[in-house]
Amino acid sequence: MGYLELIVSCIFVNNILLAQFLGNCPFLGTSKKMETAVGMAGAVVFVTVLAGTITWIIYHQILVKFDLVYLRTFSFILIIATLVQFVEMFLKKMIPVLYAGLGIFLPLITTNCAVLGICVINIDEEFTFSEAVSASLFYAVGFGLALILFAGIRERILLARVPKALQGTSIALITAGFISLTFFAFRGMV
């Protein structure tokens, strides 16, 4: 698969949020404000690339070698959790400016299924190392894109007239459905 295809596929066609349904909890939570959404998007890109790279190495260099592929889930989540927490503490102490912008979103990512999901997809799709790293990056960019788009729409929803029973998460989900529908248009490009 060429890299251009990979990019289009990861960002649009197989958008991690809207087509693969990964990372929906923070998607609905952090899309209430644009500011939060942008921070979250940045943090996800950062962590996903880091986690995608490390888990790929661990999987192929350790788990496959020792025939322990069934420990994939177990080791991935522990590595991601440790990594995220470590990076968070590091940033907080060493680069407070970056922490304020990005770092505060890190804990949210520990249990973000998008990150673990992308790591698992990298393995399932049997990507090579460079493919895995770029796929991680582009999936995360896709997440960020959807999140920011959605936050923009949600800020508008606040001022719209929504029937009572539909207010809150309900209307947010339906809106997400329509964004997902627009992303459908990219199908067939790959």
């Binding site: 923070p26 949210l108 990512i109």
Partner: peptide, 14 residues
């Protein structure tokens, strides 16, 4: 402590 983000903040500590 689930860091689910449901509250709209960036995780439980935030």
């Amino acid at each position: 402590g689930a860091n689910c983000g449901g509250c709209g903040f960036a995780g439980c500590s935030a």
